[in-house]
Every structure is written in structure tokens, then in C-alpha cells.
Design a protein around this nucleic acid. Structure first.
Lengths: 205, 205
DNA sequence: TGAATTATTGACCAAACGGTCAGGATCAAG
DNA sequence: CTTGATCCTGACCGTTTGGTCAATAATTCA
């Protein structure tokens, strides 16, 4: 009983769906939804176009499935903030975790960036529902810490926006970042150090 | 001699090219390059598709022209930082100016966001050339202020990244921001206040 | 006014794209 | 080996899209 999914998947189904998800992530994250063709996804997955459409009913289906499969993983770091932990360590840990995500999963970052830029046509429910609740919970924790004088007062929601924007900037706009920094520098290491300094100063009571 | 352009433009040319640029900005900024059709641009400009192609040779031509026409305006705020001014006021003024750009020109912000996300296929020269020089000049000014002890020490380039990412976040991801904040709040006003507080703490020596 | 230039469009084309389908290949189980 | 289910594909279809063009309308200017 290792899999709780309703329809049991054969090995081939499992393998090919994974291949398609990975190929789709490659292409969607590089070209956006409209800029992606099923042929490109198929090629990137090493399959034929009709075969891809044997596993997914449409390009939209692939996109929607990909987004929902990745959303939890993408939001996980924020839910790992420990209300019982040390405030400064928890926040800086979250920043570091998001920075690691940008370094290790830039495709996912760009995928969501495209989706939000587009107006989040596939994420409206999540934006107005689940995401807001998750953020609200974190906001409550941060607000509690500020009320206890363990963090300097600031708007918790905009604090979260700042963390999202700055960390994801290194993934989404990596080309610009590298163009400005020049070669031989590690944007992610430097960015991590900068953010650490910045949030330490902002949040020290 | 009000116009220095090589080929003199008739009134009609001037007017229609402007219409096309504005329509293209609408559509490109909402759907990205691959997501927009010439028909959409034409409709948004109030012209027919062949008429649009009478003024521009291709969709690519429209896009390239739009980017280059808007680039100067987009980078202007950074060049208005006054090396002889008060360091803190100059930086906070730049942040405020960028924030105003996000509020007043979200289309431009999204247009460039798409382009950089895509890998900046039309801006590679500018990214590696002009932009870097402009940034370097600003970096020199900031570095001077830090060396003089008038600003706290921090990496000037990552400081600039942080300003770009946070201010543009309010335009590019406005939907997400509004979804998280809920109705009845002004993201730009609040964001401006937050950033002011943040950079004041970071940069006070 | 009239000729020349500029502006506009309906009709059209070839390529690309999302998606379908009948039929064949492969595989698992008895 | 046989059989039924799963897996895979070449060929195909209707639509969309970027772009062309010949013909017509509007404008400019001598």
C-alpha cells in the first residue's frame, strides 16, 4: 500500500507521466504556456506527440497538472516556519530556504512567474483560497513575535512579499542578474549574504 | 526642426505608429510575445491587421521597436540619482520613483518582465552593454557614499537588485499581491511605506 | 483640378498548431 | 501460447497565425 491514488498506475504509466511532467516543466518554464507546443514537450520527454496526448487530454491538462503537482513543494518552506523557534533564525532560515529553491529549482520559479504574470488563469482558486490562508497563518506567527518584542515591527505581509520577490528574482531574472554582475561571481551566494544582512537589520528589535 | 528623425513622418504615420505602439504594449504586456497575435494588436490599436503590417514589417519588428522605445524611459530613474545629493534621500527617492513606475506603468514593467524571463532574446546587447554601464555608474556613486561613511556598507549591486525586484513585484505580480492582501488595501502605498522603513534601516550607517 | 504619393483593406497563402483516430505493437496474466 | 488490455504511432483534420498582394481609397501638392 505504497500508493494511495485511486487508479493504480502501471510502471509504464508512472514512468511516462514523469517524463512528460519533466519535459513540460523544461519547456513551459522557458517559453510560457502560449510559447510552448505539445511537440516541444514530447521531444523534451523523448516521446511522440500522440503518445503525450495518450496520457494527458490536452496541453491545458498538462499545464494544470504540472502546476498543482508542484504547488505544495513550492509553498512548503513557508509552512516549515516553527512558531516555537527563535524568530530571527526562523525568518532567516526561510529566506535561505527560498534562496536555495531559486538556485536548485529555477524552472519551478519561472513556471509560477509566468503563471502569475499571465494573471494566474489556472491558480485563481489557490490564490484567493489556500495561499491566503497559508500566508495568514505565517502572518499571525510573525505578528506574535513582533508583539512580544522579539522582532522589530513591520508589515508582515509586505515582509513576505519582499522575501518572495527578492529570492525569486535571482531565478526568474537570472540572465539580467548575471549580465549585471559579470562572470566569475555567484549570484546566489552573494544574494544570500546580502539578504541575511538586510533582514537582520530590518528585524532586529 | 522639431523632429531630428531621418525619415520625416506624416501626421498619419506618427499617429498610427503611436496607436500601434500603445496597442502592442497592451497586448504584449498581458500575454507575452508568443501569446499575442498581430490581430490582437491591430484590434487594440483600432486598425486592421494588414494596416499594422504596413507600418511594421513583422510582429518581431513591433516588439523590438516597442522595447527599445521604452527602455530609456524605464531606466531613467536610476540615472537621476544625484551624486551631489544627500545619500539617504537619493536612494529613498529612487525607490519611491521605481514604486511610482510600478503603479503608473505596470504594462511596461510586465513587458520587460516577460522579456527577461524569456531570456531577453531582444535585449542581449543592452543587457551586456548599456545596462551594465548604467549600473556600474550608480554602483560607483553608492560605493563612494559608503566609503565616506554616509551609507552603511552593503553590496551595491545586490542593493540595486533588491530595489528592482521588490518594486517591480508590485506591478508584475499584482494579482498575487492583491489576492494575499485582500480588498480595500492599497498595495503600492503600503509597499512604499514598507520599503522606506526597510532601506532606512539597512542603509543608516 | 489632376497627378503622384500615401494609406487601407479583403482575399489569400503556407506553415504551425492542437487534437483525433484507426490500426498495429507490446505487455501482462492465465 | 493465447488473449485481452495497455501502449504507441503515422496519417490526418480543422483552426489559427504570420505575412503577402493586388486593388482601392484618401491625401498631398504642384
Amino acid at each position: 500500500m505504497t500508493d494511495a491514488k485511486m487508479p493504480r498506475m502501471t510502471r509504464i504509466q508512472q514512468k511516462n507521466r514523469d517524463l512528460i511532467m519533466d519535459g513540460a516543466l523544461n519547456v513551459f518554464s522557458a517559453n510560457g504556456f502560449r510559447g510552448t507546443t505539445i511537440d516541444q514537450i514530447a521531444w523534451s520527454a523523448g516521446l511522440s506527440k500522440p503518445n503525450v496526448l495518450y496520457y494527458f487530454s490536452s496541453k491545458d491538462d498538462i499545464h494544470r497538472t504540472l502546476l498543482t503537482e508542484l504547488l505544495d513543494m513550492w509553498l512548503a518552506p513557508m509552512q516549515q516556519i516553527d512558531p516555537a523557534g527563535d524568530p530571527m533564525s526562523e525568518v532567516l532560515g526561510y529566506v535561505a530556504a527560498k534562496m536555495r529553491m531559486s538556485r536548485d529549482y529555477p524552472r519551478e520559479s519561472r513556471l509560477f512567474a509566468y503563471e502569475i504574470l499571465q494573471g494566474a488563469p489556472h491558480l485563481t482558486q489557490i490564490l484567493g483560497g489556500g495561499l491566503r490562508e497559508i500566508v495568514d497563518r505565517t502572518v499571525a506567527v510573525l505578528q506574535g513575535w513582533m508583539d512580544d518584542g522579539r522582532l522589530a515591527r513591520t508589515d508582515p505581509r509586505h515582509l513576505i512579499f519582499s522575501i518572495w520577490s527578492m529570492t525569486q528574482h535571482y531565478a526568474d531574472f537570472e540572465i539580467q542578474v548575471r549580465a549585471v554582475l559579470g562572470r566569475g561571481r555567484d549570484p546566489f551566494d552573494e544574494g544570500q549574504a546580502f539578504l541575511d544582512q538586510m533582514y537582520r537589520k530590518l528585524l532586529t528589535p
